[in-house]
Write a protein that binds this DNA or RNA. Structure first.
Lengths: 235, 235
DNA sequence: ACCTGAACACCGTTCAAGT
DNA sequence: ACCTGAACACCGTTCAAGT
């Protein structure tokens, strides 16, 4: 269980050094905007510096390396999520929170590859993680199963968003993929048939998967009261 | 629905030009070995050329660009999967096939980031895709729901493997993450508790998620005979 | 058909120096 | 505490040239 976080701020024991963090935020905000505009492929420290009208090395005053910078951008993207209430029926809570997480990802398409390529999950996933674990444990799940369920939900959500984003790269061609790849329709008939959906509804696909997961989880609730679980004591 | 494939071979209408494809395979095989050994971070065309005792530009005789090369490596990794029989109970088939897909990914940890970063899914996923769609349609699912279920399964499987691989990067620290990120245990109690699992069993986590998904799918089977479905006619 | 070697336009990052 | 400018060790990719 390792998660990425910001750098431990050094010095400045008084007055909170507000300018330092503010500048880092401005930097990350500009970087996120740049990466959403031009795509992660074209992003570089030198371009970011140029965009800010500053020398490349000035960036290193707020960031320790490019990897740190990319992690910061990925985190900033997820941090922008606006979640609904964490209280009430657990299925509603999980559905709403992972919908919100997905929405935040789709709002920053350029940052999604950074979330994947980061060697740690951004620290901003702590919030949906906490809500998920808490909701599932309240309903009777053990700590380990709750954690497993969280991994299921988060990998599905991020993976789905990632796949959706890639469609943005090139045209919306579809059946052509089958021909391009010289797939003989006889050996892959179902794939060929599926390739005909050239206007795939990713929202519905996500909702379908989410429903499947929630249904599966509901059937797994340990013992009593598998309906709403509002009345269950915690732990 | 877009998937990546190899380059359409040009010319050589007779005798199959076996040397050309053989060399490309050797190149990809060497690249895959190199990326598994040194990690995707250190990989470059120049290093690969050096490993092969050849000039960097020689690589471009078998590959059109670095992106094409990386896609080829990712595809080669997945292509190595050995799948069980596609016949029999649909839950057994799906479980076995996605276990095999996951195994192939974990056998080539360095290639997993390439699978994610590729702008198309490797063409080698056609095989598990075909099997999944076929099995689910035989059991009564419509084409679209079968495709949605496939996306659920594949994003979960790849995402889970990806997360597991990242643990390989640094040490196996765990609770330290909580302190590193300055998470107040009071605001994230469940996350703090979960961070105590420093020897997380990813196999069990994957099996849990897979079971949840299969249970959820089973509950979604359209109408009659939701047990095995061997006797159902297709379409 | 395949490989070479030089060159071009970029990278991330260091270092010493300025204020 | 923050920024600069030059330099270093790398990149992917082009081009003309060899066989």
């Amino acid at each position: 269980m390792r998660l990425a976080g910001r750098h431990r701020r050094r010095g400045s024991r008084r007055s909170a050094a507000r300018h330092e963090t503010l500048d880092r935020r401005r930097l990350l905000k500009a970087a996120l905007a740049l990466i959403d505009r031009d795509g992660p492929q074209r992003f570089s420290i030198r371009r970011l510096a140029n965009e800010l009208g500053v020398t490349p090395m000035a960036v290193y005053n707020h960031v320790s390396s490019k990897a740190d910078l990319l992690e910061g951008i990925a985190n900033a993207a997820i941090e922008g999520a606006t979640y609904p209430s964490p209280h009430g029926d657990w299925r509603r809570v999980l559905r709403g929170w992972f919908q919100a997480l997905r929405r935040a990802c789709l709002d920053h398409p350029g940052a999604i590859p950074l979330i994947e390529s980061a060697e740690r999950l951004p620290a901003a996933v702590f919030r949906p993680m906490e809500t998920t674990l808490s909701a599932l444990q309240q309903v009777g799940f053990g700590v380990e199963d709750a954690l497993r369920a969280y991994f299921l939900l988060v990998t599905f959500t991020l993976g789905q968003a990632s796949y959706q984003i890639k469609e943005w790269g090139r045209g919306i061609d579809a059946g052509s993929a089958v021909k391009e790849n010289r797939i003989s329709g006889t050996t892959f008939p179902a794939v060929t048939q599926a390739a005909m959906f050239h206007d795939w509804d990713f929202d519905m696909s996500f909702e379908f998967g989410l429903s499947i997961i929630l249904t599966g989880l509901e059937a797994r609730i340990p013992s009593r009261s598998r309906s709403d679980g509002r009345e269950r004591s915690r732990r």
